[in-house]
Nucleic acid binder design. Structure first.
Lengths: 279, 279
DNA sequence: TAGTGGTCTAGACCACCAC
DNA sequence: TGGTGGTCTAGACCACTAT
């Protein structure tokens, strides 16, 4: 077998990648069986091994394939967990939409047939510039960070970090390295700082080296980063930064008036064909 | 110069990548001057050229570097445009938050010192499975797609596609391959289908080949995909899918009661240090 | 032990850009 | 024209997984 001539000019490894992509979308490979090994592709297409690797690199960086040393190259699976970040009912006027306690997420995941667990940490650090700015502090001021490392089905899923002004957390259960019943918002409410509104910033980027190590996503899997600043009547209360492995979740927001539509429309089947392309 | 021994076990190209990453964050290179050329790195670190390329590949796929053929390897710049997708004032009860006409975006970008332009297309296609499901249609049914290809400062920025049931668009200005004054929502309102609520799904993924070609982001730049289903009292009206080049924008949502906080908090300075890492 | 992907080398030629 | 990154080859040895 030889490489189909896409454009006569395009390099071999790109034509090879395109052909493999075609074979993948045509359903030639299943999630359980590996792709042909590099040596076979080498002979099938009549190229050097490095060229095969360049081609597979392309598809790995697109998030379609994953290489497992000693085992083979497989299709990447995309288990998806929906995350209703603006509240269970998606009604913006529900107060509990600002920060659902871990119990809510755990229960939601359970209903979706997934197991969500979390490790907890508390740390005191100097504020990053952007965090300080959002909390109205000077950069470098001490802040309390409460961190949850969440796993879905025992695999890394997200990192959620709540950032508090040190003076606010001092002498409260927020200083304990444990979860609080009802979530941190219960503690805040007891302190007279009931959160009533928030602004979310959403960005996506590739993980840095330590992030890549924790998330174990490998190349081709971006992070989805949600930065929420919550407010009470006086001003900003905390910054919640949550980093999700982008191939494992979908964030849902309700906008405007959804009327009695408290139940969500059934999530549409995630389709790889959704990666439809521009003209 | 030789490669610093991170862990004695880690491969050369990873140690080389780590050292380059260190030099980058230390500010050793500027946006205007290229990094040392491959031949120099080869000699500096005493490795083969392919090893240098493997190391640079790592940083390119992290979105930190961009290679320009014939010119050199440079730091990637990240111009950022904030996109207030839940309404100019971020108040959820504002009706205009559901779909801001292009004029609004253009004006907003102008205030941020950026130029936002758009090319327009109308096409009639068979509905993708997930789109059909959200509109309550059978897969393969004909739908009308109104597409905007948006450029920021003449560079690819986003693709916005509104999907309509063919019967809804037939005989209306929605069939014309042009923008409509006041946006498509004005047409819908005239048809008695005033949009009053919406659900947004947010995901992030790497671009496919055609997307990569249009967005010109290269490896290391994910897409941020916002899929909005709008509703009136009767049911779903349209599906708006917007794909953003993730290194160029940030999506903003207002949640809950922001009170008189109609003016947004000043966007925090985007810091590369925000790519802080897990334990 | 056999087979997989992971790393690394040394060299060649090509395509694009600036001068 | 010279220098940059882009492509490609041929071969070697290593690390991990399964059996």
């Amino acid at each position: 077998m030889t490489i189909p001539r896409g454009s006569a000019q395009s390099p071999k490894y790109q034509r090879l990648a395109a052909d493999l992509r075609r074979r993948i979308t045509a359903g030639e490979f299943t999630v359980d069986d590996p792709l042909p090994v590099e040596g076979v592709l080498e002979k099938q297409y009549g190229v050097a091994r490095n060229t095969v690797r360049l081609a597979v690199d392309v598809l790995v960086n697109e998030g379609r394939l994953v290489r497992l040393q000693g085992k083979g190259t497989y299709l990447r699976e995309h288990p998806v967990l929906d995350h209703r970040v603006s509240g269970p009912g998606l009604l913006p006027d529900q107060r509990d939409c600002l920060a659902a306690p871990t119990e809510v997420y755990t229960k939601e995941a359970g209903q979706a047939g997934r197991e969500l667990t979390a490790d907890f940490e508390m740390l005191v650090v100097r504020a990053r510039v952007d965090i300080a700015e959002r909390l109205g502090l000077r950069p470098g001021e001490a802040i309390v960070v409460r961190r949850q490392l969440r796993l879905m089905d025992r695999e890394p899923y997200s990192i959620e970090e709540s950032h508090y002004r040190a003076g606010l957390a001092a002498g409260t259960p927020l200083m304990e390295p444990d979860q609080v019943d009802g979530g941190d918002e219960a503690v805040l409410a007891a302190l007279g700082r009931t959160e009533i509104g928030a602004v979310d910033h959403l960005v996506s980027r590739m993980p840095g080296p330590e992030e890549a190590q924790w998330f174990q996503g490998g190349p081709g899997v971006p992070l989805l980063v949600q930065t929420r600043v919550t407010y009470d009547g006086r001003g900003p209360v905390r910054v919640i930064e949550t980093r999700y492995s982008a191939d494992r979740c979908r964030l849902l927001y309700g906008v405007g008036d959804l009327g009695a539509r408290t139940a969500l429309p059934a999530p549409a089947t995630p389709v790889d064909g959704a990666r439809v392309d521009a003209p």
